[in-house]
Design a protein around this nucleic acid. Structure first.
Lengths: 127, 127
DNA sequence: CAACTGTTATATAAGTATTATAACAGTTAT
DNA sequence: ATAACTGTTATAATACTTATATAACAGTTG
């Protein structure tokens, strides 16, 4: 299984699951229409409770990232693009501002930060 | 007071305080050696409990961003730069990766993301 | 000494995260 | 049809986090 939980990570388990699924989507490992493991299957393989996995799936559904249908496995949604509104952009920008501030206070130079971002943006085309 | 609580923000109060103080440091409003409001003073002005403010101050001290001394007000620390280690850079990079992934799934194009980041990095020199 | 600081201690309450069990309701394949 | 899978709902218990409330203690400053 391409999913794992990091014991050292202090963030909630359901958040780790959410982020890893999103990451797999970004990498193209998971594409629209693809099926996710069932909640019980994934929970067992991670050694956690069914409802913790379900909680992750529910939040992903609320973000319209996956589809849930009774009796069927969760599937990756075809994401419609009217989500890129000014409000959304402002939210993302606020999160970048916070992260950049943190990075600067950790002693990273603006150049180092730009390098990190550009490196990840280049990686997009390769992956 | 240059600090406020956003009722619509779902994040914990102490985190809002932490982020706003960091933001003020980044903007140069707060400089090393500057005094922060006392925990009671700030709590009263925000209409929240003393211990909530203290919890924010404690976490800032743990990050070596402020100094706390019994009987004295908290002060902005002179931040030493041996914090910019490979491990720190990796942590920051991981946070950028997560945020970029989120932005892409929200429908932002790589170009829009770069624009957001570059705009904030330019703002650094002006501020 | 008085009035300010941070610190420690207790207690309470509300919210979040996680686990546990069990039953119910659709889907899929035998 | 039925067995074995899916998600869904319900209920309960536990642990952790967040926030408040009061009070006392300890160092600093005027």
């Amino acid at each position: 299984m391409w999913l794992s939980i990091d014991e050292r990570d202090t963030r909630p388990l359901y958040l780790q699951i959410i982020n890893q699924i999103k990451e797999q989507m970004r990498k193209g490992v998971l594409k629209p229409g693809d099926e996710l493991p069932s909640v019980r299957e994934l929970a067992d393989s991670l050694g956690i409770n069914m409802h913790t996995v379900r909680s992750a799936y529910l939040k992903l559904r609320d973000q319209e990232i996956i589809n849930l249908r009774l009796g069927r496995r969760a599937t990756i949604a075809r994401l419609q693009q009217p989500r890129n509104t000014p409000g959304v952009q402002a939210d993302i920008a606020a999160r970048f501002e916070e992260l950049i501030t943190d990075a600067l206070l950790m002693g990273l130079s603006p150049e180092e930060i730009k390098k990190i971002v550009n490196l990840q943006m280049e990686h997009l085309k390769t992956v």
